[in-house]
């Protein structure tokens, strides 16, 4: 399964820059192409596309969302084990282990180290076995 780019693509190249696995190719101002063998279905291309030219694996046209409104992970440290699954699964490596909190057992919990790199894919949340990661836009209110 893979995302797909349709004829409405204007070749702006925004998706190429964002794709974390280098699956999108194409010349400027020409229709781009997603390599289905490389695509990991993170959806970043669909969220960034200004012409709604990306369809997801089910053939549904992806909706453009302003990047500043993309969901980002929030961590419930009381539930977190921590096992590192979220850090490893992040396609853009924007999560990292934090410094341990002094006075407690010295486990290193994950945090969003590089929030500007986060593409809001939600893999970290969907792969956390104990549901300690939640995707949220609540940071907008902060």
């Amino acid at each position: 399964m893979s995302y797909r780019i349709t004829e409405t693509c204007n070749g702006c190249g925004a998706c190429v820059k964002l794709c974390p696995v280098g699956a999108i190719t194409g010349e400027k101002k020409n229709i781009h192409l997603i390599d289905s063998l490389l695509c990991i279905e993170c959806g970043a291309c669909g969220r960034i596309c200004p012409t709604a030219a990306v369809k997801d694996s089910f053939g549904i046209v992806c909706e453009r969302i302003k990047r500043s409104a993309w969901e980002k992970p929030q961590f419930d440290l009381k539930t977190c084990m921590p096992c590192g699954i979220c850090i490893e699964t992040c396609p853009v490596n924007c999560l990292a282990p934090a410094e341990p909190v002094s006075g407690r057992e010295l486990h290193s919990h994950p945090f969003l180290k590089e929030d500007k790199r986060c593409i809001g894919c939600g893999f970290c949340a969907s792969e956390c076995p104990v549901r300690a990661v939640r995707m949220s836009r609540s940071f907008l209110a902060e």
């Binding site: 084990m81 921590p82 096992c83 590192g84 699954i85 490893e88 010295l106 486990h107 290193s108």
Partner: peptide
Amino acid sequence: EKVKYHCYSCPLG
């Protein structure tokens, strides 16, 4: 010990 080390997918550390 400065910090516990967990291998991937290990809740024990």
